[in-house]
C-alpha cells in the first residue's frame, strides 16, 4: 500500500463524519432531538475512551468518572460565565482542574496495590456533588444557569479527534505499554523497572483530564448544569460503555458509547421500561460476549485497507 494513498484514506476517514454531519446540520436536516443525541454521543465517547484508559488499559477500577466530569464542567462554566474567559482556554483549564483532582485522589490510593481506587473514587464522586450542592457561588442544588451555548459540532468533533488521537498515541507508546504491564501483573511490572505508582497516577489523571474536557463541552451545550447531572449513575453509565465495548479496546468504547447513547435516546419515551430493556441487554451481552463487543481488539484503517487490497489481488504499487 502506497503511503500517500494511506494518508489520503486516513484523512477521508477522519473528515467524512464531520463534513457529513456538518452538511446535514447546515441543510437543517437534523432535528433538535437528533442533534442532542449526536452531541451526547460525542461527549460519551470522550468519557468512555478516557475511562477505558484507566480501567481497561491500566486495570485500575475507577467509579467516579462523573465526579471528574463535574469538576471540568463547573470549572469551565464558571470561567466563561462569570470570569468571561475564552471558550478554548476554559475547556482546557476545566480538563486540567479535573486532572488535578485526579492527582489528589490518585496519589494516596494508587500507591497501594488493590482496589482502593474504586472506593476512593466512589467517595470522591459523592463528595464533589455534596460540595456543589452547597456552594452558592455555583448555584447550589439549582445549578449553574445561562452558560453560553458555545459547544458546536465543530468544537465537539475537534476535541473528540484529539481525545482519540491522544489516547491512541499514549497506549501505543512505551508509557502506554507500561500501563498494560501493570494491568497484566503489577509485581512483574515493577521487577522490570517500571515505576508502577507513577504510571497508575499518570493514566488516572490523563483519563480525568479528558473527563473534565467532556464536562466542559457538556456544560456549554446544555446551558444548565446541576450537581444531580453528575451522579453515580452517570459514572456507572460510562463504566457500562467501557465494559460493553471491551476493556482495553478504544474502538469498542467508541461503538458502545454510540450504541448506548442511541439506545437511551430511543427508549426515552418508554420511561420505566427503559431500565428493564437496558439491563436485559447488558445481561445478554455479558452472557454471550463477556469480554465485551470488541474484546481487546482494535479496528484499524490500515489493516482494513490491506485486507481489501489483498482481496482484490496484488496492488499495483
Amino acid at each position: 500500500m502506497a503511503k500517500g494513498k494511506y494518508i489520503f484514506w486516513r484523512l477521508v476517514a477522519l473528515l467524512l463524519p464531520y463534513v457529513l454531519i456538518q452538511g446535514l446540520l447546515g441543510a437543517g436536516l437534523i432535528s433538535d432531538f437528533q442533534q442532542i443525541t449526536l452531541m451526547m454521543m460525542g461527549i460519551n465517547i470522550i468519557l468512555a475512551v478516557s475511562l477505558n484508559l484507566i480501567v481497561g488499559f491500566t486495570g485500575q477500577l475507577a467509579l467516579g468518572h462523573a465526579g471528574f466530569m463535574a469538576v471540568g464542567a463547573y470549572t469551565a462554566a464558571v470561567l466563561t460565565l462569570k470570569i468571561h474567559q475564552p471558550f478554548l482556554l476554559s475547556l482546557i483549564l476545566g480538563g486540567l482542574a479535573a486532572s488535578l483532582a485526579g492527582l489528589l485522589v490518585g496519589l494516596p490510593t494508587l500507591r497501594l496495590k488493590g482496589d482502593y481506587l474504586a472506593i476512593a473514587t466512589l467517595g470522591f464522586g459523592e463528595i464533589i456533588r455534596g460540595i456543589l450542592n452547597n456552594v452558592e457561588y455555583v448555584g447550589g442544588a439549582a445549578g449553574l444557569l445561562g452558560i453560553p451555548r458555545l459547544t458546536t459540532w465543530t468544537w465537539l468533533y475537534g476535541f473528540l479527534v484529539l481525545t482519540l488521537l491522544g489516547v491512541m498515541n499514549f497506549v501505543n507508546s512505551t508509557h502506554g505499554r507500561a500501563c498494560l504491564a501493570i494491568r497484566e501483573d503489577e509485581i512483574a511490572a515493577e521487577t522490570v523497572g517500571i515505576n508502577t505508582t507513577y504510571y497508575k497516577v499518570v493514566a488516572f489523571s490523563l483519563g480525568d483530564f479528558f473527563a473534565g474536557l467532556a464536562g466542559g463541552l457538556y456544560a456549554h451545550y446544555f446551558y444548565l448544569i446541576q450537581p444531580s447531572s453528575f451522579s453515580f449513575f452517570r459514572s456507572f453509565d460510562v463504566l457500562v460503555m467501557v465494559v460493553l465495548g471491551g476493556l482495553g479496546s478504544i474502538t469498542g468504547s467508541v461503538l458502545a458509547a454510540m450504541g448506548i447513547t442511541l439506545l437511551n435516546a430511543l427508549l426515552q419515551d418508554l420511561a420505566e421500561f427503559r431500565m428493564i430493556i437496558y439491563s436485559l441487554l447488558l445481561i445478554l451481552v455479558m452472557i454471550f460476549r463477556p469480554q465485551g463487543l470488541m474484546g481487546r481488539r482494535e479496528w484499524s484503517l490500515a489493516r482494513w485497507l490491506e485486507k481489501r487490497g489483498e482481496a482484490r489481488g496484488p496492488a499495483g504499487s
Binding site: 498515541n169 499514549f170 512505551t174 504491564a181 522490570v192 523497572g193
Partner: peptide, 14 residues
C-alpha cells in the same frame, strides 16, 4: 516492556 527504563522518550513525545 522490559526495556522501559533504559529506552524511553517523554510523555509529550508519546
Amino acid at each position: 516492556i522490559a526495556q522501559h527504563w533504559h529506552r524511553n522518550y517523554g510523555l509529550g513525545v508519546a
